[in-house]
């Protein structure tokens, strides 16, 4: 270190250099991520509506009180809960299955991995469009095949009981790769000897899976499902594309309701209050999730 200091021509410059290096990043992050967050907090205490600029002003906790009188809030929160639980549950089970299958040494392993991971690179809007073309009333693949087989075509995205499951399938398609990739990465850290010695002891497949593999990759599954819950809670692009919250609001998640209130309708004040609520929900959920996770660890 001493020799370095004498060799570098400007030692004073080198102490400042790391700060100069991170300066652009800090400027971007503070201006476009931190500042909007603070502004959302401030706006949540204001009456701030695009359509009523004259009423602009500080109103204290009025927006927060309004949460309790909002008839659309609870239904959207329940839909979000259903959305996150169903979506992340299915993604985890199928993602785990996919990872276990893709971890086996077999022919075409590389090709199969590429094919199954492809939806990761496809956006929510495009996934929505691809699945709309499957579910479309008149020209969709499913209804055409149904007609060919003599079954009654259904209005998959227009029916109040079919729309939610249809959207879940589309989002599932896009979400499986993330879980599969994360779990596969964890599976690859398990040395072969572990499996070999289990086999020597005469353990069957189910025992190996539940007693050896799953406990070893538990942490990765926990991390991936947590990320996925946060992601599913906030994502709007796919639902916006496929149903835009309809029919009759059965696919209006909390995130979509928040977007409509704050951006589409232009109620920046109350919209920010909803944003603060969702921030609190996410923080609370993350802390509870991590706690529950570590309590589980102590049991083992």
């Amino acid at each position: 270190m001493v020799s370095n200091r004498t060799l570098n021509r400007k030692p004073g410059f080198n102490t400042w250099l790391p700060y100069l290096l991170i300066l652009p990043a800090v400027v971007f992050l503070v201006t476009f991520l931190l500042y909007p967050m603070i502004r959302a907090l401030i706006n949540s205490f204001f009456n701030y509506q695009r359509t009523k600029p004259k009423q602009y002003g500080f109103i204290g906790l009025e927006n927060y009180k309004a949460l309790f009188q909002d008839d659309d809030l609870l239904p959207s929160l329940l839909i979000s809960l259903k959305w996150v639980v169903v979506e992340v549950g299915l993604q985890t089970v199928i993602g785990l299955m996919a990872a276990l299958l893709l971890n086996r040494r077999m022919k075409l392993q590389g090709v199969l991995r590429t094919v199954i991971f492809v939806p990761w690179a496809i956006s929510g809007v495009l996934t929505g469009i691809l699945w709309m073309l499957i579910f479309d009333d008149n020209f969709g693949l499913i209804n055409n095949v149904f007609e060919m087989w003599g079954l009654t075509p259904r209005s998959w995205l227009g029916n109040t009981s079919l729309a939610f499951p249809s959207v879940v399938i589309a989002e599932l398609w896009r979400g499986i790769p993330f879980l599969a990739i994360t779990i596969l990465a964890a599976l690859q850290t398990i040395p072969d000897e572990v499996y070999e010695s289990a086999k020597m002891d005469g353990a069957n497949r189910a025992t190996v899976l539940f007693r050896i593999t799953l406990p070893l990759i538990k942490e990765s599954i926990m991390y991936a499902t947590l990320m996925r819950c946060i992601w599913a809670f906030q994502s709007v692009d796919l639902i916006m594309t496929m149903t835009n919250g309809g029919p009759l609001g059965v696919t209006t998640t909390f995130a979509l309701y928040m977007y409509e209130t704050s951006v589409t309708t232009g109620n920046y004040g109350y919209g920010s209050t909803l944003a603060m609520l969702s921030f609190l929900i996410l923080i609370g959920f993350t802390i509870a999730y991590l706690k529950a996770n570590s309590y589980g660890m102590e049991d083992n």
């Binding site: 790391p18 700060y19 991170i22 990043a25 800090v26 992050l29 476009f32 991520l33 931190l34 500042y35 909007p36 967050m37 502004r39 959302a40 706006n43 946060i230 809670f233 906030q234 709007v236 995130a255 928040m258 977007y259 704050s262 951006v263 920046y268 919209g271 920010s272 944003a275 969702s278 921030f279 996410l282």
Partner: peptide, 28 residues
């Protein structure tokens, strides 16, 4: 000095859902 703070700050902003800040971003 502040390296860890910077790392934590980045991780926090990475977790921050954009739907929360979309209306203030629009106003900005």
């Amino acid at each position: 000095r502040g390296k860890n703070l910077f790392m934590v700050f980045m991780l926090m902003t990475q977790m921050l859902p954009r739907i929360i800040i979309i209306s203030p971003l629009y106003l900005l």
